[in-house]
């Protein structure tokens, strides 16, 4: 059915946190263990699926010069996190779908984005991608593709980037599992803590996280996409211009609320909100919102507002 309509076939989506604790020290805190179990459950579902590709959007891979896509067929390294280096190194040996990476870069360019592949031995694959791929696909059973999160990109650019992913999935006829690597609230404690004492940084962060989880559980992905600016203002440390994961996830999976959502775990990771969530496309619909922001198809670049202001 999906092929007949030239629509991509997305088996399900996963939203998961970038912190290395579930990979490196799941025993250090009961919550880390629950996140690890949730990752394991996702791994099993992936193994039982007929997926051809795991497509990852990682918020811990920032790019500046356009949108970068990993295209080295077999990246091998030992990654060490900048903050959590004391937890140990993360050796990896991944299998990348180079055809998809090249196709994604081309599809992004066709939609007006600046995009390029990176295929260099030793390129620093980010913590979030390493954690997700190690836990979700430890045997490289399914090839992966990793796309960066451009620091300056805002809503239009990010949505177009997601639509470009749909273009190439449909074109190559690949069945995909879509993975977004991102925290919910991302404020960590700024001091070292005993892992057993970990908790969400503030009540406000926890309240917002739980509200977001309600939306995820109800399958309201497009509603979350539309709430992204509120989420950014309320519970995101402003390291980048916007909270973008829900924009990309919705644009890639389909901009609607027809999903079966399942929150497998929600726990603190050094104060930030970490959740492992699955979204599976369904026929039903849920939601009570209508939207007035443009559903952009092509990225036209900056509008040169600053230059126009010179009188």
């Amino acid at each position: 059915m999906a092929e007949e309509m030239n629509e991509p076939e997305i088996l399900f989506g996963i939203y998961c946190p970038p912190h290395p604790h579930p990979l490196l020290c799941p025993e250090a805190n009961e919550g880390y263990g629950k996140l690890r179990s949730a990752y394991d459950a996702c791994r099993k579902r992936i193994e039982e699926s007929e997926a051809d590709l795991i497509l990852i959007y990682s918020t811990t891979w920032p790019s500046i010069v356009g949108h970068q896509i990993q295209a080295l067929e077999n990246p091998v390294w030992t990654h060490v996190d900048d903050d959590f280096h004391y937890l140990g190194g993360m050796p990896y040996d991944f299998k990348i779908d180079v055809d998809f990476a090249n196709g994604y870069a081309s599809a992004a360019e066709k939609r007006g984005l600046h995009s390029r592949t990176v295929a260099y031995e030793g390129f620093p694959i980010d913590t979030g991608s390493v954690v997700a791929l190690q836990l979700l696909n430890p045997d490289n059973r399914i090839p992966a593709c990793i796309v960066s999160s451009n620091m300056y990109a805002n809503r239009a650019e990010t949505i177009v980037l997601g639509k470009a992913a749909r273009d190439v999935l449909a074109e190559q006829g690949k069945k995909a599992i879509v993975v977004v690597v991102a925290s919910l609230s991302n404020r960590m404690f700024t001091e070292h803590i005993d892992e057993v004492d970990d908790r969400i940084h503030s009540q406000k962060d926890d309240d917002w996280n739980r509200k977001i989880l309600e939306f995820f559980a109800a399958g309201r992905l497009e509603d979350l996409s539309q709430l992204s600016r509120d989420i950014h203002g309320q519970i995101r440390v402003s390291k980048v211009v916007a909270y973008k994961p829900a924009w990309w996830m919705a644009a890639t999976m389909g901009q609607h609320n027809n999903y079966a959502g399942e929150v497998l775990a929600y726990e603190a990771l050094h104060g930030s909100g970490g959740a492992v969530i699955t979204l599976t496309p369904t026929d039903g619909s849920f939601g009570d919102k209508e939207f007035d922001e443009d559903d952009v198809e092509f990225y036209h670049g900056d509008r040169d507002v600053l230059d126009k202001g010179m009188l």
Partner: peptide, 14 residues
């Protein structure tokens, strides 16, 4: 001792 690859400009710095 290792190799540093710039994450933004890997085409320039390895």
């Amino acid at each position: 001792k290792s190799k540093s690859v710039d994450p933004i400009f890997p085409n320039l710095f390895r």
